[in-house]
């Protein structure tokens, strides 16, 4: 699963810090993410992992530190210095963002086909037939019957909505996808199917991903590396299997024992 990685990191976080007034959102978080690599950010709610995701995806400006991203043209840029136009362009081409609640990532008032096709149209596709064919292909890749392309997401189940959201994000072949609790709020059986699907897609497409989750099982299944957060700091990081099988930090041990042990 590491064959897609190359020498240069895709995204680099350098001592990323965020204060909310006197309160710490997150502090001194640093790591490198390589193409095709999946990083899980785990921790309890309030540990700063959602803040970190917003900082990494440029939706929040850090109080200190910086986030660097290697663009498609090979130039590495500080995402804070990107213009709004460049940021939006990244978000509809090279990046994806999968929200915990699919309703936040979908247009609930238009058909599934339009949901998937929107990014294509935003980057200039102007052939209805081709847009539709591409949307059908992607619906099938995420295991949605292409015959339901003209239905609105409101007619879909929770699991289908989440898969539709994934298709909508992947249609422009992004290199990096941010996922915020992608299986949160789904039934356990639906979660398993979704995780399987995401794992397959990530491997097939050589996607890099940053997955925020409080569920260590999700981290175990999806990620190569893991970053454990507590009180806004990254307290432990390493290969996922290593950290989960042999946690060094007492807090990580506590997390692992409380969740993974039968």
């Amino acid at each position: 699963m590491t064959n897609a990685m190359t020498d240069a990191p895709l995204l680099t976080a350098e001592a990323v810090t965020k204060f909310y007034g006197a309160r710490i959102g997150c502090r001194d978080v640093g790591f490198e993410l390589y193409p095709g690599e999946v990083l899980a950010v785990v921790g309890e709610s309030g540990s700063g992992k959602s803040t970190l995701l917003k900082l990494l995806s440029g939706q929040l400006a850090p109080s200190d530190g910086r986030v660097l991203y290697r663009m498609r043209d090979g130039v590495t840029r500080d995402i804070l210095t990107l213009s709004e136009a460049e940021r939006r362009f990244l978000f509809r081409t090279d990046w994806g963002f999968v929200h915990q609640h699919a309703e936040q990532g979908l247009r609930m008032g238009v058909s599934a086909g339009a949901n998937v096709g929107e990014r294509l149209m935003a980057v200039g596709w102007r052939h209805y037939g081709k847009i539709r064919t591409e949307a059908e292909t992607w619906l099938e890749r995420v295991e949605i019957d292409a015959g339901r392309i003209d239905e609105r997401p409101t007619a879909y189940s929770g699991g289908m909505r989440q898969r539709l959201q994934i298709a909508r994000n992947l249609v422009t072949a992004p290199r990096l996808v941010f996922m915020d609790e992608p299986t949160g709020g789904l039934d356990v059986s639906v979660q398993a199917r979704l995780l399987d699907l995401v794992r397959g897609l990530v491997a097939d497409l050589g996607l890099a991903a940053i997955v925020v989750t409080h569920d260590l099982a999700v981290a175990r299944l999806l990620s190569h590396r893991i970053l454990v957060m507590k009180d806004g700091r990254a307290i432990e990081t390493g290969l996922t299997d290593q950290v989960l099988d042999d946690p060094r930090e007492p807090y990580t041990q506590l997390l692992v024992s409380s969740i993974l042990q039968p």
Partner: peptide, 16 residues
């Protein structure tokens, strides 16, 4: 930002 994808979404929906 010339962010007009939404405009074509509407036309797409009409045709669909």
């Amino acid at each position: 930002l010339e962010d007009y994808g939404l405009m074509h979404v509407k036309l797409y929906e009409d045709i669909a």
